[in-house]
Every structure is written in structure tokens, then in C-alpha cells.
Design a protein around this nucleic acid. Structure first.
Lengths: 230, 230
DNA sequence: TCTTTCGTTATGTATAGTCATAATCCAGAA
DNA sequence: TTCTGGATTATGACTATACATAACGAAAGA
């Protein structure tokens, strides 16, 4: 019998778990035994098992051994696309209109979100993204000028503020929160929907080197869905 | 100089990338060179780099070498909690009321979602979850009885249908989609909110062994937020 | 000039052996 | 009886080596 690859081992272990052969909570044979069974090196079995840990299928503790998780870690991964890419990958024509761009002192609520002193200069940009000419997303962004002074000279007519920011801070940490919100009159007008429609709202804080670079609210049309998979 | 661990190597590579020493798109030294630099084995460098690939920081291709990603993979991971756990971990008292439980033939729209023939028997369960006595989430679930016949005898008054299902199929594949919806009169009444409020809606299809086991719609109170992090 | 072939190269995977570390368990002391 | 300190054990990590594989690129052939 030929020795198995780590992928084959991983697939086989997964099969036994999903197939109910090894029940949740039960102890899995140790690396030595499995290595022998699959005629592979212990390191190979180890790699297969490590990936199963990453996927939340099993739990491992030194000396205690390896167990099938009782309640698998259930997380969904959502892709967070740039609006422009999201639209063009659907095959639609992307466009955006800069509705506002001004520099103002930060209000209290904003200063807290951006983690700056109240009254510090921030840039406020409102931008409407469209797909095939139809309104798609309303972007309301606040940029911390202390963290990214280059924003003063940025031209958001060519690239939207989102694309610009991603170029500035490609490896940022981001906090996201999603909720539902009722459309105000102004929002409804811009998104060509009705006053009081339920809009899907995404709030993001972009953090880079312990500074909040930007805070943005994205409002989507009522029919918008964000989908993901385990 | 002592040889570095894979964690140290990974941290150092990350530092150089985040610190701007290695710019997006640029070529990273190969494993040999890095192994020499860190006085470690190639396998150790390899492991560090593989984890950076997992995290979407770098891209690797045989022969072509390793590059810093230009547009890092941006995904958010959301924990998908069981409602009961979500509430009790907040320190609130959990409760639920079974509002309906009946077996009916599947309508066309549902048959499509459950991937069964139109008219097949499905179980329809509606359940209201509460935190500290206040309505928290309205669960409207359809269970494919062909896939989980045991649901006929299940008692959802002790454990909610969600907990029951997780026990039945602990390792399921799940499709999630989130959106905003307007509260109907009935929904508003149950959630003690107002008619026409914007509710945060989550739809989930639970798939196990290529069968759709259940389809559920979860409606949250207007102030509900789902948060995550990169 | 265009195409095919093949050598080179960087990553991908596997191996055996070693040492490190955390956790369990048990024996013996207080 | 309770506590403490090893002995044991399973995973975690690292090394050196080897071969596999994908892809680039240059040389050979049409």
C-alpha cells in the first residue's frame, strides 16, 4: 500500500467524522497510530490534523489527545469587496458621483469613532456608486486627516475614496458592523428608493497602526443581499 | 545568533510588509535566502510563509516566487452563534416560545430552496427567542423531513429548533445571506417594534451531504447589529 | 518568426529523527 | 487526606534531506 498524502489523510479523517464514524466529543487515534495506519510520517499526519484544527473540526491538546469538536466553530467568511470591483464582476458598468467633499471639525460622536480629539479636522466625503446607471450604494465617509494628510490633495473623481484609501493603507485592520436602517428622505432620493424603505447598512472603521484612518457608512438598496458561506 | 521559530519569522516578515519595507507587488526573498538569514531550516520558513498565504498577505507561485499581495484578500469572519448562547453570553436570561409547529406540503418557492419536489412534506416551525423577557429574534424555520425524519418526533419546547438541528447535523455546510427587511404587522407585534421598522434579516440554508436540511429566516429587532473583524 | 522542448528554479510535499512543552497520572511525603 | 513532584505521554516544533511539480525562459527546430 502506497503511503498517503496529507490531503488524502485529511480527507479520510474528515470522512470518518462527517460520516459519523467518529462522533463529536470522541477521542481520535493519536498521530503515531494514524501515521502507522496511513503508512505516512508523523509530520504528515500532523499537517492534516493541524488543518482540521484551523477549520474548527477537531480540538487538540498535548497529552490529552485529539477530539472531535462537539460544537464546531461556526464562522462565516464574507468577502468584503471594493464596490467598484463588486459591480464590475457582476458584469455591470460601474460609475460613481462625488456628491460632497469638505473639511470640517469633528463632532463629538465622530471624534469618538475616529479616536481623535473633538474638533480635529476631518474630511467628509459623500459618494454615490452606481451599477449600469442605477444607484447602487451610498458611501458616507469620514477621513482622519491627522492619520492620512494626503487625503487633502486626493482626487476622488477618478477613483472613489474607497479605492484611494486601499491604495494608501493596503494592510489595514477593519471593524465591520452590519445592520438595517430606514431610509431618510434624502437617502431615498439618492438611491431612487422610497422614504421609509429598509436599507442594508454596513459601518466600517479602518485601523492602521493603532490609528483610526477612516469611518464609513455604506447604505445599500432595499433589495441588496450580502451572502457568505461557512 | 539563535535560530528563529516559525512564529518569529512570520512576525518579522509581517513587520516588513506592514512597515512598508516590502511594498505590495514586490518580490520577497526565496525560502533558501530567508532560511539562511534567520538561520532556520527551509521547512520552518515555509511554514511561516504558508500561514501568511492563508491570511491573504502574500501570494506564492512555484518558480515565480513569493510576492506581497497588491490587494490583500479582504474577508470578515463573523461568528454565527446559536441564539441561545449569544444571549446567555451577554449575561441575559434566555427564553423561547414555540409559536407554531406544523407539517405541510412545500410550496414552489420553498421546494426550490430546500431542493425537494414541490408538495413534499416539510415541517414549519416559528419560534420567538427572548432576552431578559424582551423579544430578541423571530425564527421562521422550514425543515426538510425527507432529510431529517427525526424532526417529526422532536420536542422544540425544551430546546429550540436551532439547538436541536445542530445536534442532529453538527457538521453541516451553511449558506448565509443577510439583508434588511420591513417589519410586517405580525412581525412587528411579535418583536414589539413598530410596523414598517427596518429589521435585520438573516437567511440560512443548512446543507448536509448534498441535501438541504433546513431553511431558516431570522428577524432581529431594529437596533440589532452584527459585528465582525478582519 | 513562431513553436516546441527541455533545463532550471522556487515552491510543495514527504521523511526520519530529535528535542520541547503541556497535561495527566501516580506515588510518596506532609 | 491532601498536596507535591516526578514519570509518562501526546502534541508542537525544528532540522536536514529528498523528490515532486509548476512555471519561467532559453535554446533548438520548423
Amino acid at each position: 500500500m502506497r503511503s498517503a498524502t496529507y490531503r488524502e489523510i485529511k480527507a479520510d479523517l474528515l470522512r470518518r467524522i462527517l460520516g459519523g464514524e467518529w462522533l463529536p466529543g470522541s477521542l481520535v487515534p493519536n498521530e503515531q497510530q494514524l501515521a502507522q495506519e496511513f503508512k505516512a510520517a508523523r509530520a504528515t499526519v500532523n499537517r492534516a490534523m493541524r488543518e482540521l484544527v484551523d477549520e474548527g473540526i477537531i480540538e487538540r491538546r498535548r497529552k490529552a489527545g485529539t477530539r472531535v469538536r462537539k460544537a464546531p466553530v461556526r464562522t462565516v467568511r464574507f468577502a468584503v469587496p471594493l464596490t467598484q470591483r463588486e459591480i464590475s464582476e457582476r458584469g455591470s458598468a460601474y460609475g460613481h458621483t462625488l456628491l460632497m467633499s469638505e473639511i470640517v471639525p469633528a463632532q463629538d460622536w465622530l471624534a469618538e469613532r475616529l479616536n481623535v480629539t473633538s474638533g480635529a479636522e476631518v474630511m467628509h466625503v459623500i459618494c454615490l456608486h452606481s451599477a449600469d446607471g442605477e444607484p447602487y450604494q451610498l458611501e458616507d465617509r469620514w477621513i482622519n486627516l491627522a492619520a492620512t494628510p494626503a487625503a487633502r490633495e486626493a482626487d476622488f473623481t477618478q477613483n472613489g475614496p474607497m479605492e484611494w484609501l486601499v491604495q494608501q493603507v493596503p494592510f489595514s485592520d477593519v471593524e465591520v458592523s452590519m445592520s438595517a436602517a430606514l431610509a431618510t428622505k434624502e437617502q431615498a432620493r439618492l438611491l431612487k428608493s422610497a422614504l421609509g424603505d429598509a436599507l442594508f447598512r454596513v459601518d466600517r472603521r479602518t485601523i492602521w497602526r493603532d490609528e483610526v484612518v477612516a469611518y464609513v457608512t455604506l447604505l445599500h438598496r432595499p433589495d441588496y443581499q450580502m451572502t457568505g458561506r461557512y
